[in-house]
Amino acid sequence: MSTTEAAEATDQHDAHDHPTPRQYVNIAVVLAVLTALEVSTYFFDFGVIAIPLLVVLMIVKFIYVAGWFMHLKFDSPIFSRMMYGGLTLALVLYALTITVILLDQAPTL
């Protein structure tokens, strides 16, 4: 039993690299502020920058959660590759699909 536990303990790779709970709370505070900013676009008129701003905020929140809470920043790069590989493929394929469908709605294209 003891050998297994020892193995398990070393298997938990680099626990010391992980952020502290305080850091997690700080991240959450940042996320909360960003969300508040997002929601404010509904109440106040941000004009033309509203939509680009929302997209940027979404990406920032995404990266924060993925990087810190999901440990992508600290883990093996292969995990990031799996995640962002899937994400990129999805973005490219579906953007293409939507383009093709919208193009058809303009009959000359």
């Binding site: 394929l93 193009l103 294209l109």
Partner: peptide, 18 residues
């Protein structure tokens, strides 16, 4: 192979650019 799917739809409702 992921980027060629619409060649199954050449006679479907897709335009000349696609």
């Amino acid at each position: 192979g992921f980027g060629v799917w619409a060649h199954h739809m050449f006679t479907s409702a897709i335009g000349p650019v696609a």
